[in-house]
Amino acid sequence: MKKESSHEPGRKYGMVIDLDKCTGCGSCMVACMAENNVSFKEDESNKLDSITWMRVYRLTNNKPFPETEIRYLPRPCMHCGGKGDLGHSPCVSVCPATATDYDHKTGIVSQIYTRCFGCRYCMAACPYHARYFNWWDPIWPADLKKSLSPNVSPRMRGVVEKCSFCFHRYQLAMERAYNEDRRELEEAEYQTACTQACPAGAIVFGDLNNPDHAVHTLKDHPNAFRLLERLGTNPKVYYISDREWVRRSGDNYLNNEKTNTKPAVQEHHS
């Protein structure tokens, strides 16, 4: 919240997910949990208090057989840029202790676990339910402790956590780049765990501002849309589907309104 974006355009990491390719296998969820040391409960049947940084939702067109259609929608944190892409995401602007921050260099919304005191205001602010509270202490089976990732700090009870676009991978990639005296990253150098795990290649990740990255073109696909566009959250996750009902599921419409197909891209031109 403190420093507004510099005059450099900066990187703006984002995702484009092709829902027509997604099979709903859940590999992205598993990869995310393993990569980010996401804790779990002995009984995971209550989804209202279990942690899934990446969550796959099931969408249906609600039509009877044989016209029934199903799509699966993976939902990471949207890393919202807020109105005007100024970094005033719903959660960042409300956190009272500056425990969640908008990084103008990458467009990534961070969560500082040791700073968060668990007021959950950010969860109330997020319309995507992308934020999760640690209702319990994380308990890892003895053998599993050895396979925890050393690059991601496990979270303690009483704090909020969420998808970081595998920010630790960005840090590692930047370290390597600096060692090689580079300041720019190749597209393949920084990819999220879910992107790499998707067997259907439905998730594409990269810098939305960089014309060399696939997401730069894909986000302008005629069938691209973002979730809850109308709220002005300005998310960095785009979805693609050739089905009108899927695109309509992405936002709320009054009965007489047409589905908006073209995302109203909000850029910040400084």
Partner: peptide, 19 residues
């Protein structure tokens, strides 16, 4: 109500004046 009561003072110390 707060998840980490011992950190309650962070709201003063690390105050985000926009919240």
């Amino acid at each position: 109500d707060i998840g980490q009561p011992l950190r309650g003072w962070f709201i003063f110390w690390h105050a985000n004046v926009h919240s």
